[in-house]
Simulated scan of single mutants.
Amino acid sequence: MACRTFEKKIDTDHLRQEVASLAESIAVRAERAAEWAAPRMGRARAEVVKAAKEAHSRAQPVVDEARTRVVEDYAPAAQRAAVAAQAAAGADGGTLTERAQRIAAAAKNAALEIPEVPVKKKHPVLKTLGWLTLAGAAAGAVYVVWRRSQPVEDPWAEEYWADSDEGEAVTVGDAAPAGEAAASNQ
């Protein structure tokens, strides 16, 4: 069987024109797709940011509580268990199994042990004294303000307005009546 080959002449100019028109068509469609997708991507981004902030705000108290428990509860309990296990491992006597059981029991008891927290003294006498001092200072301030708002009268002072009334009466009496003054000017 003989292999048949097709010899067809390819027009490169025509092929280039078709490729150029196809590339132009793809560019136009890509531009339209970008215009369509841009606002949707912006809204999606805003929603993702909003959801991430909301998730962060919901998870933050849980993370804080877990961190507090680790720092205040678990780490000290593990340290107490390690110290107790080390002390139990240092004790001599017994087989290896018995020593391992002693170490495990000591570590378990130390880890489950709740340490006594010292109770702060409240000092009720000092609190009472402080409140009484605060109340006394407030009462003193109120008294000073009240005292300064009262009018000050000097019982020994003369009545200054009595002299001024007499002086005006003398001056008015010495002056010529208004009609005479007008007549003398003419």
Rank of each mutant, 00 (worst) to 15 (best):
A2D: 15
A2P: 11
C3A: 11
R4Q: 14
R4M: 03
R4V: 05
T5D: 08
H14Y: 09
H14G: 12
E18Q: 15
E24T: 04
S25V: 00
A27W: 02
V28D: 03
R29C: 04
R32P: 00
A33G: 11
A37I: 04
A38T: 09
P39N: 01
R40Y: 02
M41Y: 07
M41V: 11
G42W: 09
R43F: 09
R43V: 04
A46Y: 04
E47T: 00
E47H: 13
V48Q: 14
V49D: 15
V49F: 08
K50Q: 12
A52E: 11
A52M: 09
A59N: 14
P61C: 07
P61T: 09
D64T: 06
E65M: 05
D73L: 09
D73Y: 01
A75T: 05
A78P: 00
R80I: 01
R80K: 13
V83N: 10
A84D: 05
A85D: 08
Q86G: 11
A88Y: 11
A88Q: 03
A89F: 11
A89I: 01
G90V: 03
T97D: 12
T97R: 15
T97W: 03
E98K: 02
E98W: 02
A100C: 08
Q101T: 08
Q101W: 00
A105L: 14
A106W: 02
A107N: 03
A110V: 02
A111W: 01
L112R: 04
I114H: 05
P118E: 15
K120E: 15
K120N: 08
K121T: 11
K121W: 03
K121P: 04
K122Q: 09
H123S: 14
P124H: 07
K127D: 10
K127I: 02
K127H: 05
W131F: 11
L132K: 08
L134C: 15
L134V: 15
A135T: 08
A135Q: 04
G136H: 00
A137R: 00
A138T: 11
A138E: 01
A138L: 13
A139Y: 05
A141L: 13
A141E: 00
A141Y: 07
V142G: 05
Y143G: 08
V145M: 10
W146S: 07
Q150M: 13
P151M: 04
P155F: 04
A157C: 06
E158Y: 09
W161Q: 12
D163M: 05
D165Y: 13
D165E: 12
E166M: 02
G173M: 08
D174T: 09
D174P: 00
A175Q: 12
A176F: 01
A176K: 13
A176E: 14
P177V: 06
A178E: 11
G179N: 10
E180T: 07
A181H: 10
A181Q: 10
A183G: 01
